[in-house]
Nucleic acid binder design. Sequence first.
DNA 1: GACGTTATTATGTATATACATATTATGTCA
DNA 2: TGACATAATATGTATATACATAATAACGTC
Lengths: 233, 233
Amino acid sequence: MTATARKSFHAIKAEMARRIAERVWAPGALIPGEEVLSIEFGCARATVNRALQELARGGVLVRKRKAGTRVALHPMREARFVIPIVRQEIETKGGAYQFRLLSNQVEKAPGDVARRMGLAKAKDMLHVRCLHLSDGKPYQYEDRWINLDAVPSIRGETFETISPNEWLVTHSPFSQAEIVFHAGVASAQEADILGVSEKDAVFIVERVTFVPQKPITFVRMIHPASHRMVTQL
Amino acid sequence: MTATARKSFHAIKAEMARRIAERVWAPGALIPGEEVLSIEFGCARATVNRALQELARGGVLVRKRKAGTRVALHPMREARFVIPIVRQEIETKGGAYQFRLLSNQVEKAPGDVARRMGLAKAKDMLHVRCLHLSDGKPYQYEDRWINLDAVPSIRGETFETISPNEWLVTHSPFSQAEIVFHAGVASAQEADILGVSEKDAVFIVERVTFVPQKPITFVRMIHPASHRMVTQL
DNA sequence: GACGTTATTATGTATATACATATTATGTCA
DNA sequence: TGACATAATATGTATATACATAATAACGTC
């Protein structure tokens, strides 16, 4: 590092992160304005701005017009999870991916499913159930309801070579989603499918996806208790 | 309203997101270069660049120098979770927060805890256990090990008015973390503390935080099965 | 045709400038 | 004093320009 400090916004961001971590800038403290910082770092205000904005997005800074920028008092740090398709998730972990279609038919959706999708009353939907395996062992049981009004072209699909998961991500991108994670107990049927004991703990992910104003699909994904969802930040 | 009615990068980003969602730009397809897009939208290249970069960060676009920008083939969408302080989490949900200190002493850390923190051999650490309650009901059982070398000033703390969680976020910001989520079964002790039945499913979050090269704390947070972790995107 | 070198090109970043916008601080008048 | 209009200010965004960088395409040599 030469006397003329590196001035890429990455370096500036790192230096500011260091100051926050080492409490040079204490939690809650007002830090210098962009103008001042740009002079200190010997760069343009836009460069400082970009570094500050990224730190603010990460939750360690709080910015308000006119009021200035301050170090977050309660750093509500945010973690980012990638939401891959199951096949990729398994293959990334080094497993051999397979999936097994368990059922695929049009049915009247139960009330709670319709409610989760924001629909006033139950209606016919495509109900697809399948099991994803890693190295031959059950990895995830997927129980999915698909709104045929939103994705009519899925009607004839047999899902013999492609899983509904993958079909949907490549044929019907969504713009909004709600994801819920929780722990639960395996029902008799679920335990049987996943090859675990009844009443065993399972890791459950539920996801509803939408295009503006229109629900596409509700899916409940169930993993054996051995599953780990990991993230770094 | 034409596509070029507004030219803020937000609007441009939204328009491009729409084109991706509606498959005007199909998955895997190469989209026009920044120069071309800036002409189409009637704005500067920098504006298009910002919109494209944000979409790329969100995972719907993949950019490579010289090769250009294409729509992600397998949109590894990313979800963002805020990691709030438990107290905030409870209060945000409208609960009355309380916490109860269960134990607070220096002990030799078990081997698996030391390993999780990247330490070669076990050593003395501060072991703090406490229970966080929402409206008087057990919400989270926190079992924490703190590396006294990294945070020596915590030694005398009694945690009578402030939880270790809150003490650490305000006194020792971290720069890296690894977070693991999974489902498990409550041990007899855990079940007793959380007020659930033994063998009930529980939602477990484990987190190790570091300052560069130095582990600060390992914490295991256990929620009753009724707990829901929710995110939108 | 197989190779290493060079040119080309799309994105990445920096800069000065300008104006927009939200919010606070200030001043005025009843 | 209190309500309300007005000025001041820090951040937010847009723009034209310039150069950096990575990856590909083109080329020439053997």
